[in-house]
Amino acid sequence: MAADGTLVKRHSAWVRMTHWFNFVAVLVLLGTGLNIFNAHPYLYWGASGTTVDTGGRWLAIGSLRERGMVMVGTTTFDTTGLLGRSAAKNGTVQNIAFPHWATIPSWRDLGLARNWHFAAAWLLILNGVVYLAYGAFSGHFRRKLVPGPAELRPANIARDAVEHLKLEFPKGREALDYQILQKIAYAGTALLLLPLLVFSGIGMAPGMDASWPWLVDLFGGRQSARSVHFIATNLVVAFIIVHLLMVVLAGPFRLMRGMITGWQRVETAK
């Protein structure tokens, strides 16, 4: 058993490698994806939808009378400066859905964004296959991510939630195992959200629609697949924000060392 203050092996080489490849892929996919979205900042449910066929539209980002607007269903929000209308890199105010600092590249370039998006998508998929194979066959998922029945009891989930809200993080050896909310967040992102993003992305490809029509049906049509792709992206962004926040609050140097070198110091318990 690791005593407090000693270095212990925290993450296997497979987990570290796939984590950082995933980091690069997701970063590129996110920035280029927002650039691609800017080419048609509307979302629909169903098979089809255009600027002149708006029956299925549920989300629009645009500008009206020099104000940036987001319309969700029938509700409109003023988002000037952030969404719909914002300053470009050179300071010029422009009508654009997502601002320049959020997109890759920082200017509107659908062709370049798509080139990078699909290369990063291949990286995400191949890296994901390696990760899933490792996780399933090495016992990593079973040991680290799958919650036991006791952990799933509402009382345990409530206790973990309260500890998170009070920013009380486990110390010592206890910190080497994931808590229930962590397990749900990690498993939900790696095993549900990212695969959902991959398959909703594939569901938008006209070539794959011919080969795998069942996939498009699963989402309820091509434009629905595009909507699901966008919603899942938002959930991944929410995960990243919380993930980074938790790392910063719980000990950024100790945790970064663990994910980079594999070795992590066991914190002295109070």
């Binding site: 080139n115 990078w116 699909f118 290369a119 990063a120 998508a121 291949w122 490809a205 006209p206 070539g207 794959m208 629609d209 011919a210 080969s211 795998w212 029509p213 498009v216």
Partner: peptide
């Protein structure tokens, strides 16, 4: 990154060279 285009084309031809569009 434009090399991904060939990967995509090969993959799509592999899983559905003669598939019909919906």
């Amino acid at each position: 990154v434009q090399g991904a285009e060939q990967a995509t084309q090969r993959w799509q031809r592999l899983v559905g060279r003669d598939a019909l569009a919906r």
